[in-house]
Amino acid sequence: MIKSMTGFGDASDQIDGMKYFIEIKTVNNRYLKTSVKVSEVAAFMTDEIDKLLRSCINRGTVNFSLKIQSASDQGLFDIDENTIQAYIKKLTTIAEQNNIDTRIDITSLLTIPGVIQPALPDEQQAEKVRESVITMTQQALEKLDLMRTQEGKTLADDLIANCDAIAQKLDIICQKSPLVVQEYHDKLKKKVDDLLAAARLELDSETLAREVAIFAEKCDIAEEITRLNSHLAQFKAFCKENTNSGRKLDFVTQEMLREANTIASKASNELICQSVIDIKCSIDRIKEQVQNIE
């Protein structure tokens, strides 16, 4: 069954006094585009997370975020005390040499680049964090997949309903199409007979037959109807596949529209023209929905 490209999944866990929150959001995109945002504590996992996302998702924009909060008094950062001591010593020396009466603001020192560093885990902690984050990511991906699958089913039902509507209009066109030539023959004959009646002339039956044959060839839409019916069958089959059918469905939709336009250009009957308009409206709805299919 087809899947939607729009979805959301999340997961959370607590590791050594730290709370980890993962969110995965996906939206439409013609190609696959991933964005992985993690704190510096888990920055070493960025590539691994990206590979995991790409192995599970084939198309769409994927936004992954990992947030960390402290669940205890343990901080998420370290202060480089040696660097602060060096700044204080240097500033004190400069003040004494220049007879400057100054007070050093410790808060200002904390804003100096390099003074505050993220509390990076050691090798053992890093491995524990990696295993937990990967597990949480898989859990979030499962939720995401469930949501995309459920929405995909809704999309499939709507797409098939539109295909059925197109098929109904094609049936009307099929029934009306053979009568168009006969109607043209009768109208043409009546019009010519009326014009020739005053001149007391008769129309050659072969000439009338030739004109009708030319008209019949120009307005023949049997091939277009057959191809459009074939495209409808292909479209429905792709909707039931378990593979990623978004691009296939997009291509078939374009072909459906092309056949509908050809029928419209050949149509010379009001009922057929109205049916083609209804068909193109259904195809437009299909095109809009297909853009959200993986």
Rank of each mutant, 00 (worst) to 15 (best):
R148E: 08
F64V: 02
T111D: 08
F77N: 04
A233V: 15
S268R: 10
T93A: 11
V180W: 02
L196K: 01
V192E: 03
Q125C: 12
Q254V: 00
H231C: 09
K176N: 10
D164G: 02
I160R: 01
E131L: 07
K191H: 06
E81H: 14
M256I: 05
S205N: 06
Q69E: 13
N261Q: 09
C239E: 02
Q85A: 11
A42N: 04
S35E: 14
Q289P: 12
T135S: 10
D145N: 14
I57P: 00
D16H: 10
L120R: 00
I57N: 00
L196Q: 00
A216L: 06
S177L: 03
Q175F: 05
A199C: 08
N63S: 15
G17E: 03
D80M: 02
F235E: 06
V276Q: 02
C273A: 10
N269M: 01
D250V: 04
Q182I: 14
R130K: 15
L155D: 05
A260M: 04
E211D: 14
V192R: 02
K189R: 14
S245P: 00
A42I: 03
P113E: 07
Q138E: 14
F235D: 05
A209V: 00
M136Q: 11
I214R: 03
D193L: 08
D105S: 15
L257V: 06
R103W: 10
A165W: 03
V41D: 01
K25H: 14
I68F: 11
P121F: 03
S65Q: 09
D16R: 04
K153G: 10
R148M: 11
K176R: 14
I68K: 05
N82V: 07
L170K: 06
N99S: 14
C174P: 05
E206C: 04
D101N: 15
L110S: 07
I84Y: 10
L76C: 00
E206W: 06
R30W: 02
E206L: 07
N29D: 15
T243P: 08
I2H: 04
L232W: 01
I225N: 02
C273P: 00
H185E: 13
D164N: 13
D145F: 12
K128G: 15
A11F: 14
A237C: 02
D220N: 14
K176L: 08
P178L: 13
A11S: 12
E294K: 01
T93S: 08
T207D: 03
T154M: 15
Y184K: 01
I286N: 09
S72R: 05
Q125Y: 04
A237T: 08
D158G: 07
N82K: 13
E206S: 14
F215A: 10
T135W: 03
A199W: 01
P121I: 00
N28V: 03
I116G: 13
L76W: 01
M147Y: 12
A209S: 09
Q168M: 04
L53C: 02
K67T: 09
D193Q: 12
I106Y: 13
N269D: 12
R54L: 07
R285K: 13
S65C: 14
R130T: 06
